[in-house]
Design a binder for these strands. Structure first.
Lengths: 203, 203
DNA sequence: GGCTATGGTTACATTCGTTGTAAGTTTGCA
DNA sequence: TGCAAACTTACAACGAATGTAACCATAGCC
C-alpha cells in the first residue's frame, strides 16, 4: 500500500504545498488578487510547476476534492428487497453525507474546509464550477438509480428524481448557509430539503 | 418608447454585430479557438470596444439573455384564493416557459437559439455559467414564493420546494437533450420533471 | 559504485483574456 | 458654432495558460 518512492513523495509534497499555499493566499488576499506566481513562490517552485500539477488556477481548489460518486453508487447497486425508489435514493444520499463527514473534501481539516467554502462563495466563477461538479455527480447517480430499477424507471424519471432530490437538498443547504444557521439547523435544513425533493411539499 | 438617439442606435448596432459575430465564430471554429480579436475584427471594431460592451468573452453569450425572473414573480405575487403552494409554483413555472417560448433567449431567432445551446453544451465553463444563472433565478423565485405564503412556508422550505422543482425539471430536460429526443418528447420530459419535483415520484 | 532512462523542475518565449490610460472622434445640445 | 458627454481607438501592461528545450534528481540496472 505504502509503495511510494522518494520521487513520488516529493511530488506529492510539492502538490500539497501548492494547494495549501493557494488556499491560504486565496483566503488572505482574495481569489483574483492572488496570482499563480505568488502561489508558486510561496511553495518555492517555478510558476510552470504549478501548471504541471493543476490544469488551472481554479483546479487547485477542486482537483483533490476527489470523486464523491463511488459511495452512493455502491449503495444503489445493493438494492434491498422491498425497497422503493425513494427509500433507496435516501439511503444512497445518507451514505454520501456520512462519507463526506468522515472524509472531508480533499483531505482537508475542518478549518481548511471552512476556508474552502468561503473562498468558493466569494467568487461567482468558482460557484459555477462547484455547481457543474454537482451536476456531474447527479448524472452518475441517476444512471445508478436507473440500473437499480430497470423495470420501474425510465431515464427521464430517474434523472428527474435525482435532480429533484439534489435540487431540494442543495437549495435548502445554501439557504441555511446564507442565513448563517448553526450546524445543527444546517443538517436539519438539508434533511428537509431531501424530504421535500423526494416526496414533495405534502410530506 | 422609441426615443432612441442616433448614438444609441449605433451603439446597439455594434453590440448586436459583436454578439452575432461571436455566436457565428464560436459555432464555426469552437469557443476557445475563437479569439476576442477575431470577433472584434469580424464586427470591424477595435478589440477594446468588445470589452466596452461585454464584461468578458463569456458574457457575449449570456449578457442579452435578460432577466427571466419578472414573469414568474408576477404570477407569484398574484396568488389566487384556494391555491396551494404546488399549484402556484406550477403556474409560475408555466408562465416562465410560455414567456421563454414567446421571447426566446436574447432576442435570438430559433436557429440562433440552437447554436446558442450547442455552444454552451460544448464548453464546461459555459455550462457552469448557465447553471449559476439558473441558480440565481431559483433564489429570486424562492423569495417570491415565500412572500406569497408567509404563514405556511419558511425560507428553507420555500428554497427547497423551488430547488426540487427546478432540479427535477432541469435534470429531465438535460437528459432528454442528451437522448436527442424530438421537441414533443422534450416538452413531455420537462413536464414530468416538474411533476416529480413538485409531488415526488408517487405522483 | 557508476550508467542511463525516466520523470519532474526550470527558464524562456508566446498567445490570449482583460484592464487602464490617454488621445481621437462622433453626437447631443445650448 | 462651440462645448461637453459618450464612444471608439491605439497602446501599454498584467496575469493565466501552453509549448519547448535544457537541466537535475532519482530509480533501476550493470
Amino acid at each position: 500500500m505504502a509503495e511510494e518512492s522518494r520521487r513520488e513523495r516529493k511530488k506529492r509534497l510539492v502538490r500539497r504545498q501548492l494547494a495549501d499555499a493557494a488556499l491560504r493566499l486565496f483566503s488572505e488576499r482574495g481569489y483574483d488578487r492572488t496570482t499563480v506566481a505568488q502561489i508558486a513562490a510561496a511553495a518555492d517552485v517555478a510558476t510552470k510547476t504549478f501548471f504541471n500539477h493543476f490544469r488551472s488556477k481554479e483546479d487547485v481548489l477542486f482537483a483533490d476534492s476527489g470523486p464523491r460518486a463511488p459511495v452512493p453508487l455502491e449503495v444503489l447497486a445493493d438494492r434491498q428487497p422491498g425497497e422503493t425508489v425513494a427509500d433507496l435514493l435516501l439511503r444512497a444520499y445518507e451514505a454520501m453525507v456520512s462519507d463526506y463527514l468522515a472524509e472531508g473534501v480533499g483531505r482537508r481539516d475542518p478549518e481548511g474546509m471552512e476556508l474552502f467554502r468561503r473562498v468558493i462563495m466569494s467568487e461567482p466563477a468558482l460557484q459555477g464550477r462547484a455547481l457543474q461538479l454537482g451536476h456531474e455527480l447527479q448524472r452518475e447517480i441517476a444512471d445508478g438509480l436507473l440500473r437499480a430499477f430497470p423495470d420501474e424507471l425510465d431515464p427521464i424519471s430517474a434523472a428527474a428524481a435525482v435532480g429533484a432530490m439534489s435540487g431540494g437538498a442543495q437549495a435548502a443547504a445554501l439557504k441555511s448557509l446564507e442565513l448563517d444557521q448553526p450546524p445543527e439547523e444546517f443538517w436539519a435544513a438539508l434533511r428537509r430539503g431531501v424530504e421535500i425533493g423526494l416526496r414533495g411539499l405534502s410530506g
